[in-house]
């Protein structure tokens, strides 16, 4: 019994369920790996604190930490 246009949209989109980029079971692995990479790269940056190393280590470390933190908080049950 379709009663509203929104219900029709729901029915029309039946072939397109939401596809996550990372499933729930992989969140911890991905999060932990990314956070570990971030830790190593931050350590390398700390060892040689120079302007040249800022893009070389800083940017990948920040990116890894950004995504790693999001996946890790999801993996522990705080779904952000």
């Amino acid at each position: 019994m379709s009663v509203s246009p929104l219900h029709d949209i729901w029915e029309a989109s039946a072939s397109q369920p939401f596809q996550p980029s990372i499933g729930k079971s992989l969140q911890f692995t991905i999060g932990a790996t990314l956070l570990f990479i971030a830790l190593v790269l931050s350590g390398l940056f700390g060892l040689n604190n120079s302007l040249k190393n800022l893009p070389v280590y800083g940017i990948p470390a920040s990116l890894a930490f950004g995504f790693g933190a999001v996946y890790m908080i999801c993996a522990v049950g705080v779904y952000v």
Binding site: S42, F45, L51, L54, G58, S62, F65
Partner: peptide
């Protein structure tokens, strides 16, 4: 969300480079 954290950590690295030198 990830980009805000990325920006935050980049700022920490930049500050640490400035202070370290």
């Amino acid at each position: 969300k990830p980009l805000v954290i990325f920006g935050g950590l980049m700022a920490v690295f930049a500050v640490s480079w400035v202070l370290g030198n």
